[in-house]
């Protein structure tokens, strides 16, 4: 059995439906109307031990809700979840020992306490032995630079420091699986790199990772597998490379021509592709669907009209694909 198994996982929230203004609110008091909202809609998901999965989708797609269902914070409306054999919302305590959770937008550190005290409280809750605790702190200090942060009260930490301390808090008990909900949100480049580096090391240690993010750099740096959801439904699940193959159909070729040539002239020779003039009269960009044309056909077509000086082909970027998903282009 997989480490994480979700079958037909569904969460429906009930939202009060009010007309605007005070009148609407008063009316709602007497005549209560609710609207149902499917945040997660029949998700099937299996994650094997040691995998690192990116869970991606536009805002409001149901990413965080899924994480909350997998961690046992929310009770599913329908469907089942098993994490390391336990049902998270019923076997909450058992599940808690297997998992580590980080919500990038929120801290789990006790606001008024020094980081050291927060970690010590977690040590007590997870029943960590003093020796194990010490060893973990040393290890986490190595990769996260924790030592400076230990005496600082949580509310005095900068965002980057807070995220490092929160990562330490989430990983203190060496969980089998770690859920990270936007672990790099709001961080500057250098801290982001540090966090990603840390996540890679974690993956190499054999920890199973599931992370939601809007930062595509996180995905390419850390994950091998990507799951894309939209409107609560899964629309892609597979290796990162396969996703590019399947969805990144459009290729873009930039050409440096030997002499000025109008884009229209090339377009006549190359039906079904888009030819756009570049910054100078000798530059053009050709955009084509790699399922209908090969790069060779495009070059041959251009050479019929004009000599080519230089060319380069854009690598299909995961960003393009995800952007399209976000724009709703891949759904239909």
């Amino acid at each position: 059995m997989s480490l994480v198994e979700a079958r037909g996982l569904t969460k429906i929230f009930r939202r009060p439906e009010k007309d605007p203004g005070l009148r609407g609110s008063l009316k709602h008091l007497v005549q209560r109307r609710f609207k149902e909202f499917r945040a997660v809609d029949g998700i099937e998901l299996s994650i094997e031990a040691g995998e690192s999965v990116a869970y991606v989708g536009p805002n409001g797609a149901g990413k965080s809700t899924t994480i909350k269902l997998l961690t046992g914070i929310l009770v599913p409306t329908a469907g089942t979840v098993r994490v390391a054999g336990a049902e998270p919302h019923t076997d909450r305590m058992v599940n808690a020992r297997n998992i580590g959770v980080l919500f990038g937008q929120r801290t789990q550190l006790w606001w008024d306490l020094p980081v050291r005290e927060s970690l010590a409280l977690l040590r007590d809750m997870y029943d960590l032995s003093p020796a194990f605790y010490k060893q973990r702190l040393e290890r986490l200090d190595e990769v996260l630079g924790l030592a400076d942060l230990l005496p600082v009260v949580a509310r005095k930490l900068s965002l980057g420091q807070r995220m490092r301390a929160d990562l330490a808090a989430a990983l203190l008990h060496q969980p089998k699986i770690v859920y990270l909900d936007e672990p790099t949100i709001g961080l500057d480049i250098s801290v982001k790199d540090r966090v990603r580096q840390f996540l890679r090391e974690l993956r190499e240690d054999g920890t199973t990772l599931m992370l939601t993010t809007h930062d595509l750099g996180d995905i390419e740096d850390v994950c091998e597998r990507i799951v894309i959801i939209d409107e609560g439904r899964k629309i892609f699940d597979g290796p990162l490379a396969q996703m590019k193959d399947r969805f990144a159909r459009v290729r873009r070729m930039h050409l440096q021509l030997a002499e000025p040539t109008p884009a229209e002239k090339l377009a006549e020779r190359l039906p079904d592709v888009e030819v756009i003039a570049g910054d100078s009269p000798t530059e053009v960009t050709v955009t084509f669907d790699r399922f209908t044309h090969t790069a060779g056909q495009i070059i041959a077509g251009v050479l019929d009209v004009v000599e080519v000086g230089e060319l380069h082909l854009d690598e299909p970027a995961i960003e393009d694909v995800v952007r399209k998903v976000y724009a709703g282009e891949l759904l239909r």
Partner: peptide, 21 residues
């Protein structure tokens, strides 16, 4: 504010975590 999320993921009774906060 949804701040019971973390207490729910820890192996200690939520009530105890809340009361002693």
């Amino acid at each position: 504010h949804g701040e019971l999320d973390y207490p729910l993921t820890r192996p200690a009774p939520v009530l105890v975590q809340v009361v002693s906060g």
